[in-house]
Amino acid sequence: MIDIFTKFSGQLFVGLGWTILSSVIALFFSLIIGTVFAIMEVVPSKIARFIGRAYVEILRNIPLLVITMFFYLVIPKYVMKINGFTAGTIGLTLYTSAFIAETIRSGIQSVSGGQMEGARSTGMTYWQAMRYIILPQAFKIVIPPLGNQFVNLVKNSSVLAFVAGFDLMYQANSIASTTFDQINSYLVVGVLYLIITLPLSYYMQYLEKKLA
């Protein structure tokens, strides 16, 4: 294992870098997109609720790999050229955003209706009540399940390997096929994933405690 690591450290760090980059981009955008669709799922407008529902149900019920392949193979053919890293990151973002939307929606709905009524009765608009009262409480409630989604996102970024995204998993495949030492190649990469996911897990637990 140490052998593989020292011999291929350059390649592995490149993989680590792409994995982190893809995860950070996907995390940022899936959180924004997820929040938008979560709100669409709870607003009074029926059309907005339908669109929100449809988005979530479609994206979370198609395998990540299929979504990613769509962006890797179909979009370049008909719309515009994008590389594997971009296609993979877009797929990962949209797929994860559906799960984050579900998580945040459940948080919004678990804030009691009295909070909204209390706010509206003082003359606040629906959006002011959402922004100042409902969403801050909802986010606090969903930190633990949101942490799960973030960890899943990092692990799911291994989908990039299938579309030449140069991430950790891609490098593991490449090292394994050069050295024929499958066990150690994948072990090294497993440890490198832990280096990202464990601190992330602990940070989310810390946030949970701090805000509780």
Partner: peptide, 16 residues
């Protein structure tokens, strides 16, 4: 509503 106040049975203070 900005001219009509309401006091609820369950208070509905903003928890955050």
């Amino acid at each position: 509503r900005s001219d009509v106040g309401m006091v609820f049975q369950h208070f509905n203070l903003y928890k955050n």
